[in-house]
């Protein structure tokens, strides 16, 4: 479903959803930042801790 009022356009786009008005097309990359290193002792501890939590949630 779409509608128009004056020059303002609206459409349903698969990848975005709905837009009204033409936002500038000016892409800017946002590279994923590294926040965890899988090999550290801390991340292993947290993984064990998280696994424990999930196990308890499942009631096993």
């Amino acid at each position: 479903m779409s509608f128009e009022k004056g020059d303002m356009l609206m459409q349903d786009a698969d990848h975005v959803g709905t837009t009204i008005g033409a936002l500038p097309t000016a892409p800017l990359a946002m590279p994923r930042q590294v926040l965890e290193r899988s090999s550290t002792l801390w991340s292993r501890l947290m993984a064990v801790f998280g696994a424990g939590i999930r196990t308890r949630r499942l009631g096993s």
Binding site: M1, S2, F3, E4, K5, L9, M10, Q11, A13, H15, V16, T19, I20, G21, A22, L23, T25
Partner: peptide, 15 residues
């Protein structure tokens, strides 16, 4: 407050 309208032209946003 508008509710519906005629068929649209393709929006240029995110084209």
């Amino acid at each position: 407050v508008p509710t519906t309208g005629p068929a649209p032209e393709p929006a240029t946003a995110y084209a």
